[in-house]
Design a binder for these strands. Sequence first.
RNA 1: GUCUACGUAGCUCAGUUGGAUAGAGCAUACGCCUUCUAAGCGUACGGUCAGGGGUUCGAGUCCCUUCGUGGACGCCA
Length: 548
Amino acid sequence: MSKIEDTLVSTLKDIIKDRYDIADSGNMVMIEIPKDSNNGDYSTNLAMRLTKILKKRPQDIANEIKEELTARVKEIERVDIAGPGFINFWIKKTALADVINVVIDAGDDYGKNDSGQGESILVEYVSANPTGILHLGHARGAAWGDSVCRLLKASGYDCLREYYINDAGNQMDMLALSVEARYREELGLDFTLPEDGYHGEDVKKIGIELAKEYGDKWIHVDHDDALKFFKAEGYRLEMKRIRDDLEYYRCEFDSWISEQKLVDEGRIDKVMETMTEKGLTYTEDGAIWFKSSVYGDDKDRVLKKSNGYYTYLTPDIANHLYKFERGYQKLVDIWGADHHGYIPRMKAAIEAMGYPKDSFEVDIVQMVRLVEDGKEVKMSKRTGNAVTIRELCEDIGVDAARYFFLSKALDTHMDFDLGLARSKTNENPVYYAQYAYARISSILRQAEKVEKLDTYDLLTSDKETELLKYINEFPNMIAEAAKTRSPNKVCNYIQKLAQYFHSFYGAYKINDPSNEAMTRQRLALVLACKITLKNALYYLGVDAPEKM
RNA sequence: GUCUACGUAGCUCAGUUGGAUAGAGCAUACGCCUUCUAAGCGUACGGUCAGGGGUUCGAGUCCCUUCGUGGACGCCA
């Protein structure tokens, strides 16, 4: 929260304490920036909220608060009571401009805040199986998860970005068989690709690579050894591809958790054991079931199949418990919409094992439809398969891809307009924002000197005030976006900031040799604007170009 | 059929624990470059917040219901 807002809130709290003896334990006192600037620089609905407690008319309460407020806060220029009891206040222009020096001093750190108060939070995202290429379905969740973590880190959360690798299930055996088939194919031998196997280009390439490197060596060894080899190599090469794609897409991870490692450390058997000891399981039809319906799931779920193998659920429970065991207070997973029905059973497991139910949250990524010229693009033209992340980014650029995915709330079905993302025109929001940045950079390059000043008394026009107020809001917005895990708020902010800047630019000539004092003050404002815009783009993982 | 999300302007979407006359961008129409990046700015047009009911000082927001769309309903992962 900025200095002025801080002052306002704490003063309002003091006032209701002193005058009405009401201690604000939660967030009774809130100030907001009215949508309509005729309603003040800031506004509070405090009087209306107190009306029930005090049993007085909101207008009367508002008037009492107004008196106290004008007496106590010197930065306030004017206070009005409006509508049903809103208290609106105007801040002295000179106080608003203080933000310029705050921004310039903070630099890359402007926007950082401590709203997270060190809460530890583990975010698991992407976690695609190492059996195929990352495609469109992963791209939205990947950009989202990455940006959410950038926001959390900036807001003082202790955040760990984690990728869970499903490298132990029977899909890995299927991968081995698929790789083997492609290997044989490349060697010109007869082969059969399993029906449930992986038919993608990626596996085919792995077969070709292995044939090139090893010749027919793996045809002549013991078949089990060969399969072990194909599994290991398939896994290694698939993971390498995934990591390369994610890096290219600017998604970073702090931790890669292997399911196989959980198996080797005995964590899955341990979970099974503990759940049984706690009486959470029963045996039926030769399988071991988890009484998940007791904890809110639709029905009970199998943990161990009658053939003795675990289902997908059991290692995943171990995966999540391991997060708690490492000391994380809060777990956030980002899952595709097709896993939606899986949430209740995982929540059930977490609750059953004694952890608070709401310490685990899942953000669901709704489906994305690729659209071009008004028609849905289902398949890649090149490969005939699902469109991959890399293919998408090579077409429209990483900046546009990330920005588009981040600009819509995660839980809405999204149409991704390829033509729009590709276009380098004003229709495209990414270019709108980046253009503003390039324009700012150009202005600053041409200036003789840009520096902090002691006073900004000339920045009093509506357009300047608008910019100042909005720049001042930035750390609040970041805190809010982190708390609600909503990078789309940052996109909205960027669009509006760019708009304010473009409008300001259109109204005034900034480098004006005939008015040096004004030029210096405006240049400092432009610099603050540049820093804010750059930082905002950083939280999205989008580049801020100096030139376009 | 059951569960779960979503439904806001012609299109794509915002809308911050319920607040003031529901907002942007695009599209459409009309203006603005001998001047710091026109990839820009400005003006206008555009709404039964899917329909209905309820909760209250106040509902796009919360609850119920109908309709529509997507997804999930395996001893798959």
